[in-house]
Design a protein around this nucleic acid. Structure first.
Lengths: 142, 142
DNA sequence: ATCTACATTATAATTATTCTAAACTGTTGA
DNA sequence: TCAACAGTTTAGAATAATTATAATGTAGAT
């Protein structure tokens, strides 16, 4: 309870009211070491397990999207039936393990920075993402 | 009608029965210059317009997935509520215009080839895709 | 303490996609 | 040529992710 003030300040300073639910979601998302890759469902389930309490799915959706808009979360481009989010908002790329449907951060040194030599005229680049899809050799054989 | 035999041969040689619907879908997809980026819905609509006839949505889904499995189509990774496909199956990257939701092929010279220096142990790389999301400056300001 | 705008919630609605089961059609081989 | 079978198509139901709705709750200012 003591260090909730961090989250309260963070929320307030970005114009989001520090409601109970948002603070709890902050705790689940950001009180951890390492990054967290999740779908909305993953997050809702984790909240239920960690806090022994349910937050409405609609609120989880609203909050995740609010956090994304404020830059606290990144949405990851994978072609999938659901959306993935990442607590690591720095520029970085991903492996996607097709055997397990798991997202894995690429380290700084895994991929050279991508150089865009020509952009669409009149547009601004919002993001550059590399997705490396991998699978076991066994899987590939079929 | 004359050059349907191309498609018939192509289908048969890959183990797909050349049904009326598949041939029609081939015509819509591959009888064009330049690549075609589409969602299932785009394709169904295009079929209806071009051929003045409807093919069941389920069939369009089945066919597109069959063509993808055979390597005639590529699925593009965009975080979106729907899946995008591409008739250009070569290794290439994309711009995604967030103003119009339009996919645009990157030219050969737009992006340097991406060098993956470390891979996940025991896995094989299936694909490497770069997605550059762009939007007008105006859009970005809000 | 009260007010007001913003948040939360359960639930309904929407949208993309897959499943189902019945009808249909290429293909094979007698 | 044609019967039979396996693969296809189809309309519509089912499922799953996400968004909208409208009533209730609550943080923060007055």
């Amino acid at each position: 309870m003591i260090n909730n003030s961090n989250f309260i300040d963070k929320l307030r300073s970005s114009g989001l009211r520090p409601t109970k639910q948002r603070i709890k979601i902050c705790k689940v998302l950001f009180e951890r070491n390492g990054t967290f890759h999740f779908t909305i469902n993953d997050l809702a389930k984790t909240i239920e397990e960690k806090l022994n309490e349910k937050i409405s799915l609609a609120t989880v959706y609203n909050t995740v999207h609010a956090f994304k808009k404020k830059g606290y979360l990144k949405e990851i481009s994978i072609n999938s039936d659901k959306s993935y989010f990442d607590t690591n908002t720095s520029v970085h790329h991903h492996f996607f393990d097709e055997d397990t449907n798991e997202l894995i951060d690429c380290g700084e040194d895994d991929i050279d920075s991508v150089n865009i030599k020509n952009n669409i005229t009149g547009k601004k680049i919002n993001s550059v993402e590399v997705l490396v899809k991998v699978a076991s050799d066994y899987q590939n054989q079929k």
